[in-house]
């Protein structure tokens, strides 16, 4: 994946949506996928907020890739990412206060989302701004779709509504919106996705399963976010 110069721009964009979906195939960013998916609406909000940060940080990191010295690469990336997180916090607080309250701490925790640092390490520091932006947009949309899928299942099954519209009232299983339901639905979705993709589900997660475990600056593969 390091030498992606030959792939077309369209592929750069679409790979993140299904084939290399960061959440359901790459198994990154599990915490927000579990914590913010009680409702489909919050799931979309979280996905779009992450996409915004991913897009911004990928563009800036790729633009500065020749300026940032190797030895302080990781702290520099973290500061850039945290800057964009602060920006989205301000924007949501100002324009969508309901979503800001619903996401709570997890908005700040976008800073330590594996996907963002992962894309910076794997992609943005080796590719030009345009490609990095496409990559970030694809990955962000893939993440948003994954969250939306899990969120829709949990909301439909657990609360009997979808995006706030009552659809299956009377048949709901409240446990699905609580924490055990989060683990259960995400587990099933990953299993089904790997069944459809006809490949074995990944056996490991975290650093061992993380694509950046080799390059990650925290020597042992410090990507266990």
């Amino acid at each position: 994946m390091a030498k992606t110069t030959k792939t077309s721009c369209l592929k750069e964009f679409t790979k993140g949506i299904i084939r290399e979906n960061p959440n359901l195939v790459g198994l990154l960013g599990m915490c927000p996928a579990l914590a913010t998916t009680q409702e489909a609406k919050n799931a979309i909000g979280m996905g779009l907020a992450t996409t915004f940060v991913l897009l911004g940080s990928n563009i800036v990191i790729s633009a500065l890739r020749r300026v940032i010295p190797k030895s302080v690469k990781l702290p520099a990336y973290i500061v850039i990412i945290a800057g964009f997180v602060t920006l989205i916090q301000f924007l949501l607080h100002g324009y969508l206060p309901a979503l800001y309250t619903a996401l709570g701490t997890f908005l700040s925790l976008i800073t330590v989302n594996c996907i963002i640092l992962g894309r910076a390490e794997i992609f943005a520091c080796k590719n030009n701004v345009w490609r990095s932006a496409l990559d970030a947009a694809g990955m962000g949309i893939g993440f948003t779709l994954a969250l939306f899928l899990v969120g829709s299942i949990r909301e439909l099954g657990g609360a009997g509504t979808w995006m706030g519209i009552p659809l299956t009232k009377g048949f709901e299983i409240p446990i699905l919106t609580q924490s055990p339901g989060g683990f259960f639905v995400l587990g099933c979705v990953i299993a089904i996705v790997s069944k459809i993709a006809r490949k074995k589900p990944p056996r490991t997660i975290g650093c061992q399963g993380c694509p950046m475990s080799e390059t990650c600056a925290a020597s042992q593969g410090g990507c266990s976010k």
Binding site: P174, S179, P180, F183, L186, G187, K200, P201
Partner: peptide, 28 residues
């Protein structure tokens, strides 16, 4: 089942453990 092996099965096990912890706060 083959396609549940690995992470999906782990997540479902986590769901059951989480269920037992849910009992501490009482079912709502």
């Amino acid at each position: 089942p083959e396609f549940f092996k690995g992470i999906p099965a782990t997540l479902i096990a986590a769901s059951i453990v989480s269920l037992s912890f849910l009992a501490f706060s009482g079912m709502s």
